Simulated scan of single mutants.
Amino acid sequence: MDLRELKALELAARAKIAFDGSAWVVPSQSANGVYRVTIGSEPSCECDDFQLRKQACKHVIAARLVQARDGGGKGPEIVVDEVPKKKTYKQNWPVYDLAQRTEKDRFQELLFDLCRGIQEPERKKGAAGRPSTPLSDQVFASAFKVFSTMSLRRFNADLRDAHGKGYLTIQMNPLTVGRYLENAALTPILENLIVQSALPLKAIETVFAPDSTGFSTSRFVRWFDEKYGTERSGHDSSVVPRRVSRSRKIASPLSNRRRSVLRLWPS
């Protein structure tokens, strides 16, 4: 028995599962909604687990159990000799602690190395006014701002430290970083940096799409919402949830997540 079967047994025993004439209506265990389930030769369910795996989820198993119980049929075979335990993994705490304590320093080093390759546009001879801020500084400050998750004013200390370490050529006003974030001209530069940062994994990764940005967009819309055209998560906000904006995964499964790096990947 696995965890899905265990949860299915709990659903069948405690929840109200009914057949409405065309599908089984199974309540969600984590929310107030319900899922419509079919349990024929090709079962289906509206839940994310089934949409991802295309295999029987706990709702399908629960519906089969209820059908067998109420209709006198044969239910799915579930071995109940041992209660399943969630698989856990040991943590290398010294390494984890070191990574946490040096994360911001390491991020700035890597970002600075990427930004050094940005080509600066030539300044026209005789152009009036002050020289514009170097593109490398604009990109570094913008990316560092998103990484920090701080407001522009609170980000001032990080900007000052970055300038002191030589990562920025000028000590800029933090409020100007907001203008850089809205500058569409930086988009192709950022896309190119995504490709460059992912290239080291190209030779070894065939199942995952490397994504070395560590950042999310400003809209939180789940991939299932995009794929199936229905809003399932209820989130579509201009404010980035903290847990999303600080995602530092460098790879994501191709089977369940769409990555912009795929269309940028050099052949």
Rank of each mutant, 00 (worst) to 15 (best):
Q108M: 14
K227H: 07
H59R: 06
N156L: 02
T133D: 12
D137K: 11
S41V: 15
S237K: 03
L152T: 05
S216H: 03
R154M: 13
W265S: 04
C57K: 08
V146K: 10
G234Q: 03
T88E: 14
L114R: 07
K54R: 14
L65F: 04
L52M: 06
V261Y: 00
S30A: 11
K86F: 07
T213I: 02
T38I: 10
I61P: 06
R257A: 02
N256Y: 07
C115M: 04
F107A: 09
E182L: 15
L6I: 00
S237I: 04
A203W: 01
P210C: 02
G178M: 03
A184M: 11
K54Q: 13
E120F: 09
G164P: 09
Y89Q: 13
A68P: 15
V95Q: 12
D113Y: 03
E82M: 12
K227S: 09
P94C: 02
V37W: 05
L201I: 00
N92P: 05
L110N: 07
V239M: 10
Y167A: 02
D48L: 13
V240A: 12
W265I: 01
A157G: 01
T38N: 09
K202G: 03
I118D: 08
S260F: 04
P131F: 05
V37I: 10
P253M: 03
N92G: 01
S151F: 01
W93A: 06
L98D: 14
L98H: 13
P241K: 01
M172H: 05
I204F: 02
V37P: 13
